[in-house]
Amino acid sequence: MKTFEYITPETIDEALELLGEGAQILAGGTDLLGEMKRGLATPKRLINLKGIQGLADIRSIPDGFLTIGSLATLSHLAEHPLVAQHYPLLIEALQRTASPQIRNIATVGGNLCQRPRCWYYRHSAFPCIRKHGEGCFAMGGQDRYHAIFGGHRCFIVHPSDLAPALMALDAEVRIAHADDSRIVPLTDFFVGPRDSLTQENILTRQEILTAIRIPVPPDNAYGTYLKVSERKATDFALASVAVSIAWLDTQVTHARVVLGGVAPVPWRVKQVEEMLIGDELSGKRIERACERAVDDATPLRHNRYKVALVKGLLRKALHAAHRSREKGEK
């Protein structure tokens, strides 16, 4: 690991002033330290945000949003009473994230900003395009964990479990900048390889992700997060699905469907959401939704199985939603 200057600002303004070429934000560090140990990240200055007061707070605010400070740990979020009450979908995603030890350190903001787990990207012997090198080694190589949607010269998948779940809840992120701050829908936060081959989100070098806001879900909403991985614990998704559905009587009035582990960004399937709204969630409609979700999949040589996983997970999630409505559960 190359050496660095380590700084502990006490306010966001101080932290923003310290940003610049060679500077890197440290939150939980469970991803960054791995990158530094492998020589993938070589910051000259490490700006630790843990000393900034209030940045790890989770609170409900009067206008109905839950605000999660970007430095809140994953275990803090999973244990929060408001999350259990309104967003059980998030708890399902958090329980399937990494390990208990990692969840006690890793932060919500860091989880959204984590780098890809592609084994060519993570291995120092492969100068891939995401490391300013040449080409993608997964193309024509070992591509079984790679993208079936949205790939373009690079076929990473976004590794987060939390991101699809937050996106299904219409979350927004607050981004601080020395001149002004902005609030951006989480759906606009992530950046695919068509827009950038070297970064996975819209943050510039002058910005810090400070909070995530989630609106209260609509009445009668049901949400679930399902994930398949090779190991049950401490493993990334081969595929996952976050679903949030709401009804008026038997008619679906609100639908969010977001896939994880299958595209360079958390993959929202709007065409499925649109076809679910306005009708009952019948078995036939669920089957059509599952077909529709994988319409534009372009699997590589060894990852066609992910198409079947997505269909199976979505089928399971939509049937669970249907059963919950029949039981009159929330």
Partner: peptide, 27 residues
């Protein structure tokens, strides 16, 4: 593993288990 995956380096920080390989000593 020294990469936060195996748990052999687990210690308790303020009563909670954490991977000691994934935190800087200065932190």
């Amino acid at each position: 593993c020294d990469m936060g995956e195996c748990g052999a380096c687990t210690v308790l920080m303020d009563g909670k288990p954490i991977n000691s390989c994934m935190l800087l000593a200065v932190d």
